[in-house]
Write a protein that binds this DNA or RNA. Structure first.
Lengths: 352, 352
DNA sequence: CAGAGAGGTACCACGATATTG
DNA sequence: ACAATATCGTGGTACCTCTCT
């Protein structure tokens, strides 16, 4: 009948030790699997642990080891498809490795917020940090902040780097653009993401590269904001110009909005204008027309980021994680150019 | 030139105390704002804190106070729109309250996985737990698990409860169904979510209630799986029956799939059959036709859940959190019944 | 005298409480 | 009475020592 002391707190290691008739140190060895314990003692300890339902105290452990077995994630735009998938991948990988995942979400992506978020995580003594905020500010903020903790950045570009998990979105954009070019379109117009996002520049770069590879001068970019409404507004600028026959939108949401605007303006997709999106969001297959788009396995990217962090934490010097590669998903929103005869080897035979 | 000891670890409270010429206890008072400190000492301490860039050590603090200032979130289906929004809301509210958010994502929703996830969080000594897994298994698992920690469940039903944050989805479904009924449709068919989800039963209940309020016997339910593909498959069963004129899909993804199937089958939406969705996912305004649907502020629900947890942690006995209410978003996918004359006060005048 | 297994002791960085000035 | 300080408790791990083959 002890008083309120130890109220609702579980048994301690020393309790287990007493019950098993060993030192608390032996209990520690068994619990942590450090080895060097005789089968007899191990058995007694395990029995006692089970009987008392002993669980080790993470704070005490963290205090003694100076490790928390948790990683921090700085995220922005969780509502977006890519980031939320990636987060799920991270959490999953972390769980399997015995780490917990601490989430910090950003309200703004200016350098100050970024630094504050990272500082927050550092204050929480996380063992590693994953920055899931693919914006320019993240890069500059990270350059300025000194962090004594392994840190990995999601980077939607082409350049591998020890501190980055790369989704090769320039290649993805190139795939999309080349696909349209292969369909005979003389050029491809681009509805880009908003400035300040790494994905925006990467996709612009890929689009431009594909064009220039064929000696085509890239037309002016129309800048959207990732939303369907933004895509619709952008497309309004394109819809009046009868020479535009192919549009590459930097994400599926904008593609969706663009398609609506184009159709409403009498420029039928895909008959008059072809549209290719980016992301392969759920449901894009059921758009009208079904959206031709570029898919990335963001969950896989998340898993790689977590895995990479663990290697860093373990003190390894892993090479840059391999880039996550895009896949072109051909559906119905892009067809050959109306005035172009194309060889019959193409894949566009859906509506004979 | 101390050896590798204290390597990469910041200053301790005692270091601050020494620099300020006070006891470590006074530093503690200042840092925690406990009061009872003379202005002089406070000032010296704050100066020393700033100079050394002192940050308190959360593990030590947790050990001494038996509180971690972190909450755990058990989540399932993060890829879904609702949960990911809610998670962002939770994280935000937690941050503002000085709590960190620890994420555990579920692979399966059977009772064992649920119990394991909660156990995991309890092992991490979180101060409170939010279960963001609106499935039946969560309810039964929670009933079986004994947790000595404040716990709040997301509950997409109608019943308020001290341990629940309610999104009144039965009212949402009722709104959708009644809207269709008001448009003159003799009955409303339902494409439901998969069994095992609380949201599924809630939406079925609301749909049924609306029907029965008018003395209509609910027709057979077609069960989907939340995906557009599932919705498309379900709609295939409905498309052949010319008497079905109104469909309420349990989420927007399924509505999207259903619309495609119906249109492909020659049953034009909204001319021949009306469709209403649920969730108001991004882009649903740009579907063809723009989707009439039901919106919930899931981020707000997340914030309420976090807020509620904090009150529980503080030892209060807050009443049940108020339910998050639905809003009907009328767009173009539902029209009056083709054979019904409706008063011209209705809102369906988009395409004159 | 090794080497392996077991135990003792010193922290880890802080908050709470009693005690002192 | 009030501000400031000593002392102890928090649950573990790291490292060293000791014993026993």
């Amino acid at each position: 009948m002890s008083p309120t002391t130890r109220e609702s707190r579980g048994p301690r290691m020393i309790d287990v030790a007493r019950l098993a008739g060993v030192s608390h140190q032996s209990v520690s060895r068994v619990v942590n699997g450090s080895g060097g314990v005789s089968p007899d003692i191990r058995d007694r300890v395990e029995r006692a642990v089970a009987q008392l339902r002993y669980r080790r105290h993470p704070a005490a452990r963290a205090l003694a080891t100076n490790r928390t077995f948790s990683i921090g994630v700085v995220s922005f735009g969780l509502a977006q498809y890519g980031p939320s998938e990636a987060l799920a991948g991270i959490a999953r990988e972390a769980q399997e490795a015995g780490y917990s995942t601490s989430l910090t979400s950003l309200l703004d992506v200016d350098v100050d917020s970024m630094a504050a978020a990272v500082g927050h995580l550092v204050d929480d003594s996380v063992d590693g940090i994953i920055v899931l905020a693919p914006v320019d500010a993240a890069l500059t903020a990270m350059a300025g902040v000194e962090v004594h903790v392994p840190l990995v950045l999601f980077y939607p570009g082409a350049h591998a780097h020890e501190q980055r998990v790369v989704t090769d979105e320039v290649q993805g954009a190139e795939l999309a653009t080349t696909h349209l070019l292969d369909l005979g379109h003389p050029t491809v117009h681009h509805i880009s993401g908003p400035a300040g996002w790494l994905g925006t520049s990467a996709r612009v770069a890929g689009w431009r590269r594909a064009l220039e590879a064929r000696g085509i001068h890239p037309p002016a970019i129309v800048e959207g904001d990732w939303t369907a409404a933004g895509g619709a507004a952008c497309a309004a600028q394109l819809a009046t110009r009868t020479e535009v026959s192919a549009v590459f939108a930097a994400n599926d949401q904008m593609a969706l909005g663009a398609i609506k605007t184009l159709n409403d303006a009498g420029r039928k997709v895909p008959d008059d204008v072809s549209v290719v999106g980016f992301d392969d969001i759920p449901g894009s297959e059921y758009f009208r027309p079904p959206l031709t788009t570029v898919r990335f396995d963001f969950a896989e990217a998340g898993r790689r980021a977590a895995h990479h962090i663990f290697e860093l934490i373990a003190g390894g010097r892993p090479g840059p994680a391999g880039p996550v590669l895009p896949e072109l998903i051909v559906r119905g929103s892009a067809r050959h150019h109306p005035l172009t005869v194309i060889e019959q080897t193409d894949e566009q035979r859906r509506n004979p």
